[in-house]
Amino acid sequence: MRKIFKKGEKIYIIPTQYGLMYGLGIFVSLTGGAIYNNNLAFVLCFFLVALFLIGMVQTHANIKALSIEKMTLFLSPSDSEGRGMIWLKSSNPEGHNQLRVQCKDNEDVIDTVVDRIHKNSLHPHFFTFKTGDWGLKSVKKIKVSGRYPFGFFYTWRTFDFPVDYAIYPKPEGEQTLQAVDDRGSGEGHRVQLGGHDFSEHKKYIQGDSQKHIDWKAYARGRPLLTKKFDDGHRETLWIDYAQAQGDHRQKMHQLSRWVHQCEAGTVVYGLRLPGQGAPLGSGENHKLYCLQLLAQARGRI
């Protein structure tokens, strides 16, 4: 293993299995040239040697002069696909190619390939990743690696770049949300979520009811949209931890589902968790706030 230090920057580089195979090719051509007095075999051997060196320098250079400016991991559901964004800055006059970005600090598998970063530029890269269990999480180190341009060498460096993020419980559960009197009487009555008259479209978000997706609009080429219904008056609903049934995990998944259902409907909703909660509200930000609370609830309840 070769370790190159440059002013505190540690870049590691080792030959890959193909690099070793290529090394074997160098040996074969050198031996062939010597045995058969074949000068063209020598030429090929020296060509391969020089290419090997170029490969080493360029693979190393491909990962140098690179910094991570920012990484955001968006609020995402557990056990499904999460989304994130990383901003990579190149101070490299050649740019970078085929960089692999990995974080392995927890069960969430962040592993993405950045095809190309242009020279001296700030490159935003959107990626998805597989999420694990829900809760508040963080990554401490980001590993950037590459094999460009020949695949003879594998080089990597690790950035200490702490990023906090939240994974909320995946919306699951078939329980029906019962309305609780806002004045606190404790008398409950069933409320049909959603209304009867079309009110507006909103962008489809995972967890929205499929019944409310506007398929006709989708067939016309528009993105996936969820229809919002309004029957003329806005009802208020409290999503209460106490209402959900089952064990703690089942309850949290159910609450997540109710948040999505409420947001898909036209109701104004609030969230009540033991020791904390969200006031009544609606809209995308309100939904994200509620989901964030659910993610934070891990270990607290």
Binding site: K7, V57, A61, K64, A65, S91, E94
Partner: peptide
């Protein structure tokens, strides 16, 4: 040759980060 390749690449000059 190795040193030349490195010097040719300004990355190896001081000052990248």
């Amino acid at each position: 040759f190795f040193l030349w390749l490195r010097s040719k690449n300004p990355l190896f000059a001081a000052g990248d980060d």
